[in-house]
Amino acid sequence: MADGVKPRVKVPKKAAAGDVVTIKTLISHPMESGQRKDSSGNVIPRSIINRFVVDYNGQNVIDVDLAPAISTNPYFEFDAMIPEAGEMTFTWYDDDGSVYEEAKSIAIG
């Protein structure tokens, strides 16, 4: 597991039914590309988050495959439909098999 991985998610607490809301996510992660070399010329092995999935009440919102060309601390902004109150789950999959999860509930009102 990469050190200091911390997911941060910005989700509105409330939305009107049927609204489209903008979600912003950021996860601190070095996203080592596997292209860089250290001071003695050895290649630093690749260590990235390779997949990011967002679901709302079990239904998929967005599913992203990440390549090493995604910047350090991967940031994503996208829109989600909110038909009813529920919980949005965010899942990041690391190269080393770790899974980072975050969940936010959204109320109608």
Binding site: N60, D65, A67, M81
Partner: peptide
């Protein structure tokens, strides 16, 4: 895709039924 990168793939976004709009923003390396 980033055509001039050592490895061209950048990301693939798949939009599910709950996507509000088929668009997304991110930050990439070039």
């Amino acid at each position: 895709l980033a055509a001039g990168n050592p490895t061209p793939p950048v990301a693939t976004f798949k939009f599910g039924p709950m996507a509000g709009a088929q668009s997304a923003s991110t930050r990439i390396r070039l």
